[in-house]
Amino acid sequence: MMETYLAPLWISLRTVIVATAITFFLWIAAARWMTRYTGRLKSLIDAIFILPLVLPPTVVGLGLLLTFGKNGPIGQFLGLFDTTIVFTWWATVISAVTVAFPLMYMTARGAFEQVDTHVEDAARTLGASEWRLFWSVTMPMAWPGVAAATILSLARCLGEFGATLMLAGNIPGKTATIPVAIYFSIQEGDMNVALILVGIVLVIAFGSLAAMAYWKGKAYKARATMVNRENVE
């Protein structure tokens, strides 16, 4: 019986964590590349990155199916190694990344653009390589915005439904994430299961919001005490 709830929870958690991590690093690569790229296609590439955000999830799902399916370009390539993505756990990850990436890309870009270029230039004159500059200056300075964008992407991964259903299907214990499981429970008239799964989602959502608030408050408190101590001296 527990399996009914635990399996979707476990699948969702794994998907969310892996997909958010992939989204985060994909975004870093894209952001760094896009800040340097000044070619004519910049706005076109920008648009392509953001496209999945404005398309209906079913369209995104179909697009993924055509790309990763047996006859799709990536599907055919994977076929050479006897591997297939469609209707496997990895399909849930790919769907989640596809819809979360545009959100990450859009919301985190502002955080990067707000970093004072003089501060970055200062690091350069102090001998920092572009790599060190990025991790020691740009990233920490943009961190509040980047963290917010990451949490937003995480939420989007957790809530992903449409594209997941089309690419990963509903295979209990394998590809049925919480949102998918909720949908099929309701379809089968199993209201109790649906409600318990909803409860689990609410706990996760509130839990991450609370964790964020606590973490922020802690950072703030640490800084505040430091100021006070120095003022007393």
Binding site: D116, H118, V119, D121, A122, A123, T125, V137, M141
Partner: peptide
């Protein structure tokens, strides 16, 4: 280089 706004790492 000392910048006009000092550009310290905050």
């Amino acid at each position: 280089f000392v910048f006009q706004n000092y550009a310290l790492f905050p």
